[in-house]
Design a protein around this nucleic acid. Structure first.
Lengths: 92, 92
DNA sequence: TAGATAGGCAAGTGTAGGCTTGCCTGTTGT
DNA sequence: ACAACAGGCAAGCCTACACTTGCCTATCTA
């Protein structure tokens, strides 16, 4: 499962998740261009690719290959599981 | 507010939060000895002190000084606020 | 008052992680 | 078939960060 918390520690990876929530199933190049456009991030393709690998390792992103395209889908279940670790007994 | 995610990225800091959930309001030396006993961590006092500073910066721990003692209290509100970021629209 | 206790500050070290660079493998279109 | 396209691999660089070391301040107790 890797480390979900480490994966969430980087702001660029969090922005990638934001982007996938807004539009799921994007390719690497789509994510790159949309990060540059909307979020003003000037990260290279390789950097984003490595970030996606970390997110995939953590189980936060699942990738499905189709021809030369690879579509990335967010999976928020690991986050929901982690939520309860310190906040279980309380009821705000 | 610092970076809550970065604070949660380190496993030792997460164990400290676990320890504070189980018994809130511990001093630095209490945390050190209990981490060594129960969790088998052999971190130095200074290391734990620096971890507590990070947690305090992130708003996850609030410290109250009393004489020569400093009691540490966990505050899980930042966690609850952040975890809704990607899991708001869903209902499992 | 002297020593023990609880904790803080600051500089130095070593490693992990984010990013780049360069090249390589498949896939698609003309 | 060949060029453009989508993505991958691996080595190197550089900064952030976890941890140590050494010394310091403040509070309590004998």
């Amino acid at each position: 499962m890797g480390d979900v918390f480490k994966a969430l520690a980087d702001p660029t990876r969090r922005t990638i998740l934001d982007e996938l929530v807004e539009r799921d199933g994007q390719t690497l190049f789509e994510i790159c261009s949309r990060l540059a456009m909307k979020h003003g991030l000037s990260s290279s393709r390789q950097a984003i690719s490595q970030h996606l690998a970390v997110l995939e390792d953590a189980g936060l992103v699942r990738a499905r290959r189709e021809g030369r395209y690879k579509f990335h889908h967010i999976d928020t279940r690991p986050i929901r599981e982690l939520l309860g670790r310190w906040t279980q007994p309380e009821e705000p």
